[in-house]
């Protein structure tokens, strides 16, 4: 049994994983980042890409070397060496991955804690999702209401309180890296701190029917002054029948149901 060129293989793995990592890190995978939360998430992704390159390089080098070294010549009917295993090696490739994934898990947990830290000074926006539109209420600004578009001041944490009125929808602004489902009958929320002014898109990412593709809203991040000016321009208040808490929400839906004998699209129908 010839000895394996361990040193050369390790070198090859290191070189290949460095090359892969360098190439992979050239790209801006997640696109533009525009929130405080995006920072740690993007760093986590980069660390994961480097570790993944390393694992992928091990598999490629091992497979490539085996094919280079032990490919049978045509007509060779002899067998390979009857090696059944190697306990030490098997323990190594069980324990090291365990440590690796637990490390990634711990790191992810730390990032999760970091991105979900609540700020007392946060701005609350009630977000109403329905087939196939988004509307927004500003409880701190006289319960002002806007449809299909919302504005937030830059640099201040925002809590989006999500409410779905018919089926499940999902709130996603790619540049902010955050996402949360709006679930009928359930109050969910999502925290984000926009840090770059600009115009973005809010995308519904949970299949919600034939109009799912078009269920978008405009997101504007601007300075506090511009935000104040915009909110003043808004004249409409959140309509009475758009509910603010879960209890009121359920109460209202019940009334509606009694009046009309059913809510379209909710699956509730009276015979």
């Amino acid at each position: 049994m010839t000895r394996l060129p361990i040193l050369k293989m390790v070198l090859a793995v290191i070189v290949l994983s460095v090359i892969q990592s360098v190439i992979m890190l050239q790209f801006d995978w997640f696109g533009d980042a525009a929130s405080v939360e995006a920072g740690p998430i993007d760093t986590l992704l980069e660390v994961t890409i480097i570790l993944s390159s390393f694992v992928f390089a091990i598999v490629c080098v091992a497979l490539g070397y085996a094919l280079y070294k032990w490919r049978a010549k045509p007509g060779d009917e002899s067998d390979g060496l009857p090696i059944h295993g190697n306990t030490r090696l098997e323990i190594i490739w069980t324990v090291i991955p365990v440590i690796l994934v637990l490390g990634l898990g711990g790191y992810s947990w730390a990032v999760l804690e970091d991105i979900e830290k609540e700020d007392e000074n946060a701005l609350t926006i009630n977000t109403y999702a329905q087939q196939f539109a988004w509307t927004f209420g500003y409880p701190e600004n006289g319960n002002k209401w806007s449809e299909g578009e919302f504005h937030v001041p830059v640099g201040r944490q925002v809590h989006f309180e999500l409410q779905a009125q018919d089926v499940i929808h999902s709130f996603w602004v790619p540049e902010w890296r955050i996402k949360m489902d709006a679930v009928p009958g359930l109050a969910t929320d999502v925290i984000v701190t926009p840090e770059k002014e600009g115009t973005y898109q809010l995308i519904c990412t949970e299949l919600c029917g034939f109009g799912h593709t078009t269920m978008r809203a405009k997101v504007v991040v601007e300075s506090q002054e511009e935000f104040d000016a915009w909110i003043k321009e808004q004249t409409q208040e959140v309509p009475e029948d758009l509910l603010l808490t879960k209890d009121q929400y359920l109460e209202k839906q019940k009334q509606l149901e009694e009046q009309s004998g059913g809510i379209e699209g909710s699956g509730v129908q009276e015979e």
Partner: peptide, 20 residues
């Protein structure tokens, strides 16, 4: 991912010193 990784490494180990 660990048991899945074990399988990948073991397939690679099967190739070493074989007649592929």
């Amino acid at each position: 991912a660990v048991p899945t990784g074990i399988k990948v490494f073991s397939w690679l180990g099967t190739l070493f010193y074989g007649k592929i």
